[in-house]
Design a protein around this nucleic acid. Structure first.
Length: 203
DNA sequence: ACAAGGATCCTCT
DNA sequence: GAGGATCCTTGTT
């Protein structure tokens, strides 16, 4: 299966995020279909980069198509995909996936669990892929340790949207913005209550 | 050099 | 629904 080209990522984060649904993350024997994402962009107080460039978030200011991996709460590694033009910090957080291949390895990395609890949450996705800080900055469009394959994009009618999770520190408008996107028909989605079909008015 | 807090997860109740 | 785990990043002294 084909990797997504670098040009795929060189668009606005709000365009790339929903387009990542149905795409596939590949690391070794593990292949995961993306089911839920969140967009974090420039002029967004929920984004790690909103106060400017720091050692941690520098990757977000770099070229699109690279992984931004960071440690959350001291123990969870989170995977983001950098978008937009260089100098314009933005990234898509991968919040949930559905296993396609390598379920045995995923179970091992996730403490022997099974079912949606395996992969519904950004820390779980990071664990299932065996990620850590060494993967931050890695180019996803090249052949390598971690790749992003084209898979199959979803139908617009399958998509549900809602506010992002765990960003109480952000400005009200950013907290309420519907920047979370998921596959409504999938069981592999976290915090489903906050999600609903996109209305005509919100497009 | 220090203190505060975090884009979460798991286990209990 | 609540609380602890666990440690890095950041802003401040």
């Amino acid at each position: 299966m084909a990797r997504l080209p670098r040009s795929f990522f060189a668009r606005d984060v709000l365009e790339v995020a929903p387009d990542l649904l149905g795409r596939e993350l590949v690391r070794g024997a593990v292949r995961l279909r993306i089911t839920e994402v969140e967009a974090y962009g420039p002029r967004d107080t929920a984004c790690h980069a909103h106060r400017g460039r720091t050692p941690r978030n520098a990757v977000m200011f770099g070229p699109p198509g690279h992984a931004y991996v960071y440690l959350c709460y001291g123990l969870h590694w989170m995977l983001n995909v950098v978008t937009n033009a260089p100098g314009e910090p933005a990234a898509v957080l991968i919040r949930a996936c559905e296993p396609v291949e390598g379920l045995t390895v995923v179970r091992e990395r996730r403490g022997g669990k099974s079912g949606p609890v395996l992969l519904t949450g950004p820390g779980k996705v990071g664990a299932a892929l065996g990620l850590d800080g060494a993967m931050s900055g890695h180019a996803l469009y090249r052949r390598g340790q971690l790749e992003l394959h084209a898979g199959a994009p979803i139908q617009p009618s399958e998509m549900v949207v809602g506010p992002r999770v765990g960003i109480d520190y952000a400005a009200p408008a950013d907290r309420e913005a519907h920047h979370r996107f998921a596959i409504g028909t999938s069981a592999w989605v976290s915090h489903r209550k906050g999600l609903a079909p996109r209305t005509a008015a919100s497009r």
